[in-house]
Nucleic acid binder design. Structure first.
Length: 509
RNA sequence: GGGCCGCUAGCUCAGUAGGUAGAGCACCUGACUCUUAAUCAGGUGGCCGUGGGUUCGAGUCCCACGCGGCCCA
């Protein structure tokens, strides 16, 4: 069927060429989006006709032919608008009837009216075929449900499912609003290396690659933190970077090896300031997007109304599990975890504390600042001014997920070096996620970094929350999937001299 | 890594007890000048994920593998 369909289409394209019609024309002057048309002509009464001319373009998603007339819907970035062709009104109506069908991308020009049934419609006077696809469109009513197609061929998902285009529009909008907010506050957007000699700023396993020109292995960054702080050392007061982070770890509904973060640093600020900034930034985005601070995620109401709850990590775990992560012995924690059936790979107090938190994180649903993490799990955060066993750190937790992480940044180079050395001890214990010693970073701190507040937000998780998406892959346009078998396009090519090789990625597999 | 589920037409899905492969949409032909899942009549379309096994006979039962999903680690 597919083969036959493509052959028929290729024949039709040849036919068009012979008739002097270019099936792949160069441009079309589109004056209105589908949304513009629907907004500007909302006021029309049913059956009311205007003489207002518009031109628009998009893909034909549905077609209802009636002999000497036809209705169809055009889809673009913003949605769909109906159009109407008629033998007595549309130039070249016969061409439409013979050659235009669902899936074609066309440009139309005409006047706007509202149908008797109340739908804003363009009465087409002229139209132009802009491309004739070789493949059939997905089913118009059910769209695409097969997750494999959604992820591997996102373009098909976007064609078939209007919500998908909308979701990625919102993603773009969220990032735009974050920039708008920070730029207005005087932050500079900067860029730091993705290729790094050694990598740090987070506990994660890095990707390794090779730089030919120096013949050395390099890492893809696992965070932007250590370089952004160098900007602060150098004299920038407020910087941020939005960018791709790479962590060579598992894939789950909330993890993806390649994801997007924003980190920002503000000199002369502490984590209290960062909490206020986080509240302000997130509520700015939510309010601008939805006009309200209450949203629904997977059937649960999430209320962003300020101020958000603040709870110390120690208090929360003690309340839920009866374990005091500051006072109780390693042995008591180990026994407790064992009784819960939790395995701890690395025998270290910090790792046990992380596991304890994992047991209770799902109990936090509404936006909550989890405060004052122990020093051993926060190697880049400054010690708390009132209790040196913990740090001035918070994580923003929503719906059991870490959405943001922030500290009063550690700027004492001696303490920082000690923290790094402790991380090296963990490496020796087999913890491949422990941080590497970045001597240049310590050297930078020796030149003096002002007191600084820093904040990192996981953009993908924020987008999941604000688009009601259950899986992080739903908000990453082209998520990782295992390489598929060879993609069959051979029979499209008539020229036998053109030998199409098998997909390279399959060869490597 | 472990458990469970799925893979049938371009898409969404049926497939009984192991006995010649089905529907809707899409596509092709025809009718139809306000339809909107348009309607009506006719038609085309299948490596049933891949490989092996059991059987007179496998989409269906068994084994292995591939890809995907969900849950757990």
């Amino acid at each position: 069927m597919l083969r036959k369909f493509r052959e028929e289409r290729l024949r039709e394209i040849e036919e068009l060429r012979r008739a002097g019609i270019n099936p792949y024309p160069y441009k079309f002057n589109k004056t209105h989006t589908t949304q513009d048309i629907k907004e500007q002509f909302q006021y029309l009464q049913n059956g009311e006709v205007t003489d207002k001319r518009v031109s628009t373009a998009g893909r034909i998603m549905s077609l209802r032919e009636h002999g000497k007339s036809a209705f169809f819907h055009l889809k673009d970035t913003y949605g769909r608008v109906q159009a109407y062709v008629r033998k007595d009104k549309t130039e070249n109506f016969e061409f439409f009837k013979d050659h235009i069908t669902v899936g074609d991308i066309v440009g139309i020009e005409g006047v706007v009216f509202k149908s008797n049934t109340g739908e804003i419609t363009v009465l087409v006077e002229k139209f132009e075929l802009l491309v004739k696809p070789l493949r059939p469109m997905p089913e118009k009513w059910h769209g695409i449900k097969d997750k494999e197609i959604l992820y591997r061929q996102r373009y098909v998902d976007m064609i078939a499912n209007d919500e998908t285009i909308k979701r990625f529009r919102i993603r773009s909008e969220i990032i735009r609003l974050i920039r708008e907010f920070l730029n207005a506050k005087g932050f500079y957007e900067v860029e730091t290396p993705i290729l790094q000699y050694l990598t740090g700023g987070a506990s994660a396993r890095p990707f390794v690659t090779h730089l030919n020109v120096f013949d050395i292995d390099m890492y893809l960054r696992i965070a932007t933190e250590l370089h952004l702080k160098r900007f602060i050392v150098g004299g920038f007061d407020k910087v941020y970077e939005i960018g791709r982070i790479f962590r060579n770890e598992g894939i789950s509904y909330k993890h993806h090896p390649e994801f997007t973060s924003i980190e920002l640093y503000q000199a002369y600020a502490d984590y209290e300031d960062m909490m206020n900034l986080t509240e302000e930034l997130v509520t700015y985005v939510v309010e601008k997007l939805f006009g309200t601070l209450k949203i629904t995620y997977q059937g649960h109401e999430i209320d962003f109304t300020r101020p958000w709850r603040r709870v110390k990590m120690r208090d929360f775990i003690k309340e839920r599990l009866g374990i005091d992560i500051l006072e109780d012995s390693d042995e008591k924690m180990a026994n407790f975890l064992k009784s819960k059936g939790v395995e701890v790979d690395i025998q270290d107090r910090g790792h046990m504390i992380e596991k304890l938190w994992d047991l209770v994180e799902n109990e936090v649903v509404q936006p909550t600042f989890l405060l004052d993490h122990p020093v051993e799990i926060s190697p880049l955060a400054k010690r708390h001014r009132e209790d040196p066993r913990v740090t001035e750190r918070f994580e923003l937790i929503i719906f059991g997920r870490e959405m943001a992480n922030a500290f009063s940044e550690l700027n004492d180079p001696v303490d920082q070096l000690e923290r790094f050395m402790n991380q090296l001890r963990l490496r020796d214990l087999g913890d491949e996620e422990a941080q590497m010693l970045d001597k240049d970073f310590v050297r930078a701190l020796e030149y003096g970094m002002p007191p600084t507040g820093g904040l990192g937000i996981g953009i993908d998780r924020l987008v999941m929350l604000l688009t009601d998406s259950p899986n992080i892959r739903d908000v990453i346009a082209f998520p990782l999937v295992r390489p598929e078998g060879d993609v069959d396009i051979e029979d499209l090519v008539e020229n036998e001299a053109l030998e199409i090789p098998t997909d390279e990625r399959r060869e490597r597999a």
